[in-house]
Computed example of a mutant assay.
Amino acid sequence: MSSSTTGGRPDDRHARLVLGSSFGGAAATYAEHRPDYAQAAARWALEHAPGSRVLDLGAGTGKLSATLVALGVDTVAVEPDPGMLAELRRGLPAVHALAGSAEAIPLPDNSVDAVLSGNAMHWFDMDVAGPEIARVLVPNGILAGLWNVIDDRVPWVDGLAQASGPAAIGPRDTLSSWRAATADIHLPSASLSSPFGSLEQAEFPHGQRRTAESLVATLTTRAGMLVMPAQEREAALGQIRAFLASRPETSSGEFTLPMLTGVLRPRRQG
């Protein structure tokens, strides 16, 4: 599902709210099985930031925060879901983690040099979140969204995407479609009223060690799967398991899921 920079129709906003609020009940599974982010992607996202104070917005269980900490970045995290926030605080006790949202950021004006978001920016209502993000950024601060996408140029990965269906692997989740799926849903950069400048996009090699069952567990943390009726979800997971069992790359033992971390980076103007 995608959201628009204008907030979308009321039914779109409701669907986004339902999907976006589905993760808390699976927070422990999310923390265990979702991948981190390529350090090279985070470095590129931050290369023009005027300082080192970074907000991880919509931080979830802290997957991106952990990458930022590994880079030595001064990180503050904001997450609206209590279950996800609890996992973040448990896993990264040294990170200053606050309850809040993209639409109501609990930080002062001009307090961070960059705002990064990992696999979360598509949940934001940018009519509200755009000005709020601009408020907490210093002049010329950086905003960047990061997405982990599977490399569907690899034949078996493309087959996995087809077998999984859009509830488990949607357009933002594959290399072939993530640019188009993200380029126009966040910041109206062409608008004269936008506080942000032109958009840049780039991808950085990444990967995750998985077994067939741990990959299935990862896919169960997708929002579309979390809200799916139990019987329908089990049927979908059975189809995914059957595909993984049919492929020599994934049928036994560990393998590397070929991935990239994609980055969408606009710059705060003024």
Score class of each variant (00 low, 15 high):
residue 86 A to Q: 10
residue 234 E to A: 11
residue 209 R to N: 07
residue 151 D to P: 08
residue 95 V to A: 04
residue 226 L to D: 07
residue 221 T to A: 06
residue 102 A to N: 01
residue 81 D to T: 07
residue 218 T to G: 06
residue 132 E to F: 00
residue 19 L to E: 10
residue 188 P to W: 00
residue 234 E to Y: 06
residue 99 A to W: 07
residue 57 L to K: 03
residue 253 G to Y: 12
residue 257 L to I: 13
residue 268 R to C: 06
residue 149 V to T: 13
residue 38 A to E: 03
residue 162 Q to V: 14
residue 266 P to N: 09
residue 30 Y to N: 05
residue 71 L to Y: 07
residue 135 R to L: 01
residue 14 H to I: 13
residue 157 V to G: 15
residue 36 D to C: 05
residue 205 P to K: 15
residue 189 S to I: 09
residue 94 A to D: 05
residue 2 S to N: 03
residue 158 D to S: 14
residue 155 P to Q: 11
residue 165 G to M: 05
residue 104 A to C: 08
residue 79 E to H: 04
residue 59 A to G: 08
residue 46 L to V: 10
residue 109 D to L: 00
residue 61 T to V: 15
residue 185 I to Y: 02
residue 183 A to F: 03
residue 27 A to L: 01
residue 258 P to C: 04
residue 146 L to A: 13
residue 119 N to P: 00
residue 57 L to T: 05
residue 149 V to Q: 00
residue 180 A to M: 06
residue 152 D to A: 07
residue 155 P to N: 10
residue 90 R to K: 14
residue 81 D to H: 09
residue 150 I to P: 01
residue 157 V to K: 13
residue 98 L to V: 13
residue 174 T to C: 07
residue 208 Q to E: 14
residue 4 S to D: 10
residue 84 M to K: 04
residue 135 R to H: 02
residue 184 D to F: 03
residue 115 V to D: 02
residue 175 L to T: 11
residue 178 W to E: 06
residue 168 A to D: 11
residue 74 D to K: 07
residue 56 D to E: 06
residue 203 E to I: 03
residue 123 W to Q: 02
residue 58 G to Q: 14
residue 17 L to W: 10
residue 34 R to S: 12
residue 7 G to Y: 00
residue 91 G to V: 15
residue 140 N to Y: 08
residue 36 D to V: 02
residue 105 I to L: 02
residue 41 A to I: 14
residue 119 N to H: 11
residue 126 M to L: 02
